[in-house]
């Protein structure tokens, strides 16, 4: 499943695709959600971020595109330090980062097409988006995207008429319409049934590989993380406690992330899934 392994690391000396340096977030009231987290992403790979609820997974990815303002630390997307950007520059940087959400976060009363095209908002002006006048190339790309995520023909359906799995496919399409340099994925499967969850994870993995885009995926299902990610980052109480290939997830590592528990069944299940997939 090591999808992106064949990609060569970037030429020597160049910045990594993403570098997170000593990222810290303290919420008003003193709760410390992130505590000096650092890691780099050098090649397009799927990275699972695991940890208990409240370990800071969601805060981590929201600090990367600054939906949550980090307290200190730096985030480099290529050459750009996102933390230091002024609002206008931040909007331009966000266009390079696609985001996929647990609750899909589609605009329910708009059509599938409008939701997909909202991924292009950064490239059109206010009145064009009001009149829904998107460049022909974007429209054609949106139709192609709809086919790629398996929703061909549903462009005029309203978002709230779709099933959960279909809604998440639209969410994935919207993020990829941005042609992002990085995908941030927040618990993409937590609102889905186990079978749909696997299909969605497979789709995210395949698209990330096709487009050579690194993806940072928050996920609480260890078996899914092991099955679909190349690399795993473990967070505990806001601190990074593990960073390594998913094959290196041993019961000891899981205990260090989640606390003591019988992990043999979880890991074996992941192995079986792998054989079945």
């Amino acid at each position: 499943m090591a999808l992106a392994r064949e990609h060569a690391p970037p030429a020597g000396g160049a910045r990594p695709l993403l570098a997170v340096e000593a990222l810290t977030k303290t919420y008003p009231g003193g709760a410390r959600a992130l505590d000096g987290v650092s890691f780099t992403v050098a090649r397009p790979e799927v990275i699972a971020v695991i940890g208990t609820s409240g370990a800071g997974k969601s805060t981590l990815i929201r600090c990367i595109n600054r939906l949550v303002e980090p307290t200190s630390g730096r985030v480099f997307l290529g050459e750009t330090d996102i933390v230091s950007l002024a609002p206008g520059e931040l909007r331009r940087a966000r266009r390079r980062i696609g985001m996929i959400f647990q609750e899909f976060n589609l605009v329910d009363r708009l059509t599938v097409m409008e939701n997909l095209l909202s991924g292009r908002l950064g490239s059109v002006g206010f009145f064009a988006s009001w009149l829904r006048r998107y460049p022909p190339r974007d429209v054609a790309n949106a139709f192609a995207m709809l086919e790629r995520v398996g929703l061909a023909g549903l462009h005029d359906s309203r978002a709230d008429a779709l099933s959960g799995g279909q809604r998440q496919r639209v969410g994935i399409g919207r993020a990829l319409m941005q042609n992002p340099d990085l995908l941030l994925v927040d618990e993409p499967t937590a609102s889905l049934d186990p079978k749909t969850a696997r299909q969605i994870m497979r789709l995210i993995g395949a698209l990330a590989q096709e487009r050579a885009t690194p993806a940072l995926v928050n996920i609480h299902d260890v078996a899914l993380a092991q099955g679909f990610a190349d690399r795993v980052i473990g967070l505990k109480a806001g601190a990074l406690v593990f960073d390594g290939p998913s094959a290196a997830l041993t019961p000891e590592v899981l205990t260090s992330i989640y606390g003591a528990e019988d992990w043999s069944r979880t890991i074996r299940k992941a192995d079986e899934d792998e054989a079945g997939a």
């Binding site: 059509t111 097409m113 409008e114 829904r132 998107y134 022909p136 190339r137 429209v139 054609a140 790309n141 949106a142 139709f143 192609a144 086919e147 462009h155 005029d156």
Partner: peptide, 13 residues
């Protein structure tokens, strides 16, 4: 790939 897809779309009335 995109050539095969329509390049115009209006929201349903």
């Amino acid at each position: 790939m995109s050539a095969a897809h329509p390049s115009a779309w209006r929201p349903p009335p």
